[in-house]
Nucleic acid binder design. Structure first.
Length: 430
RNA sequence: GUGGCCGUAGCUCAUCAGGUAGAGCACCGGAUUGUGACUCCGGAGGUGGCGGGUUCAAGACCCGUCGGCCACCCCA
């Protein structure tokens, strides 16, 4: 057993789970297309510099969670830890910013963290980004998309929208100073982590899980009081639009986000069904990012959702992801002659019924063992070619499951090849 | 990076004052000649994560290491 194993935190997704993935991916495609969003396919590797400049030098992601290495030309590359940076890079590089853009992408992201429930080192996100619209109607659109997707997936009762505005960077700087001043007076009460953050990233203290710290924050200056006029107005308008559209939300004045590029609107969709990693989707506005990465100043809003977490939720809630049994039909063929006939006939059948899933028995074996395989495949019917069938130039169609609810099983039928399609369809139709 | 729990057949787990391993499921074969499911019978499959230590003897005890799960940190 000292074989090669998968890298820690990088999981194989097996056929018993892929139906959930397909269900999620199809839902995502449908919903985003219905809002006029175009799909991007982006590289998994980018220059390290891109992430440093967008996510922020002092964030945990950049400081300790990136998979970074040098290529053969000694250029520092990084496996993308999130999608927005690469999307922005592409949109600048491809000259797409003359007009507003509505875009989305999906794929693997990489972060060197300790794996736990709902978190792995290779994980998958769907990202949705909108460029070129600065007004809060676009924030609302972005949120409506996510809300519709939850409905589509059947998990809308289990997720809650939390909303906040973190204002302009000027407003945030002023607030940060006030917050630090307050907290320094009570530094003794602060937990270790928060003390550390006091100077590196004080805003993050706001969403600390430590109850004592939270209690201390009750007396702290409020971010909302420091917001600039425009942020305040935009946030009010966003709330108004969400109210009108009937999307419930909770304003969480202590919601900030970890990535440096956000301003104004930030939001998270959270659930209490997944243990500690309850954020299933998160995003916000990033009006400065495009310019920061060298493009012409262009506002943006977007969000990312964690596919593993959504799938955990689908499983947890027992949302059925469309039953996908291995096959509709299993083909039994005993002997060389039978196998030859079966193979050729079944190919024709696939031409006629391309939506039917047909498994052809392979590997030989007795009649009995092939029948066992047919049963275990979950197929609803078996097609049987044995010596008798070959000699008589016919094929047997045998139902394997109860069709009605009455426990009655239809009888096996033996028909010439020309009648196969018709007979099989009749049997499958019950 | 920190902490807790865990590591025995493909899967879920057991046994025992420490004396060189077992069940269920799954898999393969059989129960009168060509028919699955239920039942019965049989079979294959484990250097007990790896390395070291204690002992006459270790899967069981100790140490280390690797891996898993959950939580902290952080984040989707």
């Amino acid at each position: 057993m000292s074989n090669i194993r998968a890298i820690r935190g990088m999981n194989d997704i097996l056929p018993d789970e892929t139906p959930y993935w397909q269900f999620l991916e199809q839902s995502v495609q449908r919903v985003l297309a219905s809002y006029g969003y175009g799909e991007m396919r982006l590289p998994v590797v980018e220059q390290t510099e891109l992430f440093k400049r967008s996510i922020g030098e002092v964030t945990d992601i950049v400081e300790k969670e990136m998979y970074t290495f040098n290529d053969r030309n000694d250029v520092s590359l990084t496996l993308r830890p999130e999608g927005t940076a690469g999307c922005v890079r592409a949109v600048i590089q491809q000259g797409m910013l003359n007009v507003p853009q509505r875009l989305w992408y999906a794929g693997p992201m990489f972060r060197y963290e300790r794996p736990q429930k709902g978190r792995q080192r290779q994980f998958h996100q769907v990202g949705v980004e909108s460029f070129g619209i600065a007004t809060p109607d676009m924030d609302a659109e972005i949120i409506l998309i996510s809300a519709r997707l939850w409905r589509q997936l059947g998990i809308d009762d289990s997720v809650q929208l939390q909303l906040n505005s973190i204002g302009s960077s000027v407003a945030r700087t002023a607030y940060r100073a006030a917050l630090v001043e307050y907290l320094e007076q009570h530094a003794a009460v602060l937990d270790q982590d928060s003390q550390r953050r006091l100077h590196s990233n004080p805003l993050r203290i706001l969403d600390s899980k430590n109850p004592d710290t939270q209690a201390l924050l009750d007396g702290a200056p409020a971010l909302a009081d420091y917001l600039d006029e425009e942020s305040r107005a935009d946030f009010a308008r966003l709330c108004e639009l969400l109210d009108a559209a009937g999307v419930p939300y909770v304003v969480n004045p202590r919601l900030v986000r970890g990535l440096d590029y956000y301003n104004k609107t930030v939001f998270e969709w959270v659930t209490d069904r997944l243990g500690a990693q309850g954020t299933v989707c998160a995003g916000g506005r990033y009006d400065g990012l495009v310019a920061q990465l060298g493009g012409k100043a262009t506002p943006g809003v977007g969000f990312a959702m964690g596919m593993e977490r959504l799938i955990l939720l689908l499983i947890e809630l027992g949302v059925v992801a469309g039953t996908s049994s291995v096959a509709d039909v299993y083909v039994v063929a005993v002997g060389d002659e039978a196998q030859r006939t079966a193979l050729a006939t079944v190919e024709k059948l696939r031409d006629q019924l391309p939506d039917l899933d047909i498994v052809q028995h392979a590997g030989g074996g007795s009649f009995k063992s092939q029948m066992k395989k047919a049963d275990k495949s979950g197929a609803r019917a078996a097609l049987i070619w044995g010596e008798d069938e070959v000699a008589a130039q016919v094929v047997s169609v045998k139902p394997l499951r109860d069709t009605g609810g009455d426990g009655e099983r239809a009888l096996q039928q033996t028909v010439p090849a020309e009648k196969l399609q018709e007979t099989l369809c009749a049997v499958l139709a019950g």
